[in-house]
Design a protein around this nucleic acid. Structure first.
Length: 473
DNA sequence: TGAAATGTTGGGGCG
DNA sequence: ACGCCCCAACATTTC
């Protein structure tokens, strides 16, 4: 076999796109036959949750079609990535294996082992940063330590040399003529059956690179200028809704960064939106520096907080039956569509952790299973932020009042009415706190009162007392 | 990327 | 005109 004909393996992971894909671009540059693969690892730690599996199915389907249009088949393989890749590389006489790095520590461990085995076999491994604006480790304090506060971290990012401009999709790839026994997407059973709960997901989302790009373009032209204000109003389409596309790598943060810089007026809207990319970046870098971020509080003393064991409370929260309309609306939006508005995520999360005193890890696990944008770093860092135990976290005593938040950010009640239709006929005045409504108002609105799980004033005091105990002990 | 408790100020009613 | 009180509005402190 001549060296020119030895194929290059491109291992797709959380980079399910053709444009700005360094591994794919490198494969095109090598001029060798390309074997494109995706490896499903159903037994891994932090395996994809239900909503993520639904998204993954459709995103892989979309990527497969795009590659096929270039004459390349996306091969679907299953098993531990090291075993699968090494077998495949030997079997096909591969020259090299190229991939874009993921942000999860378990994946990086896997990569390191894999790279050294491949090297030992005379096969060239190469990996690229494509999921983040800045490679973890290069943004540090003067003293060379990782940042633990967001603002200086993000300032340092913006002062660093900017991320490289995004790469174009490869114009042509050289097909590989061999065959290999791959699987079909349907065999992987990523889609829910018995019951099929994905109806709301299908109505809300369309995975894939092309949709991600058009969503970005539309957002930049229509929503960016008012973003700083509208992003906080859950009834308005003021956010980009790009999070799941970003998580699966259908669009890259570099593409977004440069699109904002290129097309947007400098202003509060673009600054705030860029800063959201900054929080994503901050979370990923934190996970890189603190691999147990998903499991353990950064501030270890929070393990001693007198958390409550309350399975019924947890279930009521998950099902949107807390009796607090804004919390229930959010949890139902999550269940129905695989997504929750950011403002409401904070309110609902604060309620679980502080009003119910249920460990943040339980909320993290639920979000992991139900969010289409579930991301190990962002999910863990955000829950720790809410719980007050993370880096640059909200202080524990910052307890969201679900009634005030609802009145402030959903003043017309459009969001609550959409997701809690049983309350829709209540006048605005009582919509956010139906338990205070006079009996005749309830009767006229046809509302049967769902008594709140806890009284917020009591719960707030209980949380503060628990926190005080922590500090004393 | 809070909210409640507490403190301060100033206008207006009233004796 | 003055002191006193009330209280809304705003600011600061505390959790």
């Amino acid at each position: 076999m001549s060296s020119e004909s030895a194929p290059v393996i491109v291992w797709f992971r959380r980079d399910l796109r053709l444009a700005d894909n360094p591994a794919l671009t490198e494969a095109a540059a090598l001029g060798r036959p390309v074997i494109a693969i995706y490896i499903h690892q159903p037994d891994g730690v932090w395996r994809e949750g239900g909503a993520s599996r639904w998204w993954l199915h459709h995103s892989l389907d979309s990527l497969g079609r795009s590659l096929w249009a270039l004459g390349i088949k996306l091969h679907l393989l299953r098993g531990p990535a090291e075993d699968v890749l090494i077998r495949l590389a030997q079997q096909t006489g591969a020259h090299s294996v190229l991939w874009n790095r993921r942000t999860e520590p378990w994946a990086n461990h896997q990569d390191t082992a894999l790279a050294s085995t491949l090297t030992g076999l005379g096969i060239t491994p190469r990996s690229f940063n494509a999921a983040l604006l800045f490679k973890p480790g290069i943004i540090t304090t003067q003293a060379g330590r990782p940042f633990k506060v967001f603002t200086p971290f993000w300032k340092a990012c913006l002062a660093a040399p900017p991320p490289a401009p995004p790469l174009a999709s490869p114009a042509a790839l050289r097909p590989w003529n061999g065959t290999l026994a791959g699987e079909s997407l349907d065999q992987w059973g990523l889609l829910p059956t018995k019951p099929d709960w994905a109806g709301g997901l299908r109505q809300s989302w369309q995975p894939g690179e092309a949709v991600a790009q058009s969503r970005l373009t539309e957002f930049l032209s229509e929503s960016l200028t008012e973003y700083a204000v509208n992003r906080d109003h859950p009834a308005q389409p003021g956010t980009s809704r790009l999070s799941p596309h970003l998580h699966f790598g259908e669009i890259s943060p570099r593409q977004m960064f440069h699109a904002i810089r290129r097309t947007a007026e400098p202003g509060l809207g673009s600054e705030r939106f860029l800063a959201e990319l900054g929080w994503r970046e901050f979370s990923a870098h934190l996970l890189h520096d603190y691999p147990d971020l998903p499991a353990r509080p950064l501030r270890r003393e929070f393990e001693n907080l007198p958390w409550r064991h309350d399975p019924d409370g947890l279930t009521a929260w998950q099902q949107g039956r807390t009796g607090y309309p804004i919390v229930d609306a959010g949890m139902r939006q999550l269940w129905a569509t695989g997504w929750m508005h950011n403002r409401v995520r904070m309110v609902a999360a604060s309620f679980l952790v502080k009003d119910l005193l249920i460990p943040w890890q339980d909320g993290e696990a639920w979000f992991w299973d139900t969010l289409v944008d579930a991301d190990l770093a962002s999910n863990a860092a955000s829950w720790q932020w809410v719980a007050g135990c993370g880096a640059d976290a909200a202080p524990f005593f910052r307890v969201f009042n679900p009634v005030l938040q609802s009145e402030k950010f959903d003043p017309t009640g459009a969001y609550v009415r959409q997701w809690c239709p049983e309350l829709a006929a209540l006048p605005d005045k009582w919509l956010h706190q139906p338990w205070r409504a006079p009996a005749d108002v309830l009767r006229r609105a046809g509302v049967v009162l769902n008594k709140p799980l806890v009284d917020h004033d009591m719960a707030r005091k209980r949380a503060l007392a628990a926190f005080a105990e922590l500090r004393a002990g």
